[in-house]
Nucleic acid binder design. Structure first.
Lengths: 241, 241
DNA sequence: ATCATTTGTTACAAACATGAAACAAAGTTT
DNA sequence: AAACTTTGTTTCATGTTTGTAACAAATGAT
């Protein structure tokens, strides 16, 4: 559920309230500061993921805050400005901001930009990982028994014939989750976490039905690919072990 | 290495030294003038890219210099002022300045503003280039099925007949994005990022409509070139897989 | 064997995603 | 300004996906 912590730096109290409520509804934790000094203190205080920074603050130029933030945290910085000025925008980005947003803006847009910025950060992390590690942690294609799971295409192929089986996205994600933890029993709860993004009011046995639907498509006589572990959940058994 | 020549007009000798050193470290060539007459002379003397102009000079009002500079050079003018005065800023911009910076400032900010201003100028130049040149020298062509995507010309050609299909720029860019990641399902969000530059206040399904329009033009009976991946997005399928 | 619990199966309806058509708004060209 | 192009928005119909309920089958314990 927790998607990240956001610090909003702005001296407009009303705006702060609106932002907080909206973003909290989105699943973020939100903290606010009304001025520069308070914000700097907060940055030292703990892990932040995104900083929303208004350039016009009562106690000093917001622009100079950007490099200071950059020094102390790896959080993404989204500048919120009253002016729609191309030069200022470029300057902000040049100084280390990650995005620039002009007031007034819609909450939906703010939310989208935060999401985009977080994703970009995540991608960077992943890329760095790939560079340092010789083996990529998440493979795009995963072979299992007579099939291949293609995570880029969201498809399952039959190895020999090469034909693709018609999996729905939901079925695919469940199978993917199981295959990524081979020979390990996963509870229905865990599987829910892995496949659905923050849903709660669902039927206990939705997973069971999904499993049944997958099995119907992944037929392999005596071999039970998706084993049910009574009282626990389900498990993908790979022959290698 | 050479990024441009900058003329700094200011009578503060210490500041001039600091500016010169910093900007030279950035790869610029820097020349300085301590007063207006000297600056005007220097402007006649050779190609400049950026002029940093302090408004308070020993021999005359700096404001009146702006139009004089504009007449003689196409360099960008960044006004450096001791006062943080909105009215003065607006007047300067009205008279032809490209940016306005308040003392004291950080070198990093100055550097960023110079970069921004140069980039803006360059963009203008490029746009003019495109208008004047009808043919682009480097053609990057990508073949797919019965068509060829010409990224230089922003056109799609039918391989056999050689006729070009009428794609709008938006349609072209979307198709391009999909083709550049073949056999990979791309979410609408991702496609948005790839094709639009920082727009968010748009309809969720704008991509869908664009896809439909592309499909209408790229007809190939049984072959689904642009596959929709339900619950995810769209994918360009290349025959190789 | 009998019972209780857990899981598999089927059918169904609500929710959802997508494509198509028509419209509207913004931008361009003439 | 008018015609045209491009692109976003709305609406509707259709088909898919998935949660739910009900029941049958399987499993394990006593």
């Amino acid at each position: 559920m927790k998607k990240g912590t956001i610090l909003s730096v702005d001296d407009d109290e009303n705006l702060q309230t609106v932002i907080s409520q909206y973003l909290e509804g989105d699943g973020y934790k939100v903290v606010t500061s009304a001025n520069a000094s308070c914000a700097l203190e907060r940055v030292n205080n703990g892990a932040l993921d995104v900083i929303l920074l208004d350039l016009v603050l009562p106690d000093g130029e917001g622009l100079t805050l950007i490099p200071q933030f950059k020094e102390k945290t790896s959080a993404a910085i989204i500048v919120v400005s009253g002016k729609s000025d191309t030069t200022e925008k470029i300057v902000c980005l040049e100084m280390g901001a990650d995005d620039y947003l002009t007031k007034p803006f819609e909450m939906r847009e703010l939310s989208a930009r935060i999401k985009a910025v977080l994703r970009r950060m995540e991608m960077q992390v992943n890329n760095n990982d790939n560079e340092s590690k010789s083996e990529s942690p998440d493979k795009e294609r995963i072979d299992f028994l007579n099939w291949t799971l293609d995570r880029a295409q969201y498809q399952v192929f039959e190895k020999e014939s090469g034909t693709s089986l018609e999996f729905t996205t939901g079925e695919f994600q469940l199978l993917e989750a199981l295959i990524l933890s081979p020979n390990r029993a996963l509870s229905r709860e865990r599987l829910f976490e892995l496949t659905r993004d923050g849903e709660f009011d669902v039927y206990d046995r939705a997973i069971d039905i999904q499993i049944a639907r997958i099995r119907k498509k992944l037929v392999d006589e005596n071999n039970e690919i998706l084993k049910t572990v009574r009282g626990v959940g389900y498990m993908f058994v790979s022959k290698s072990s």
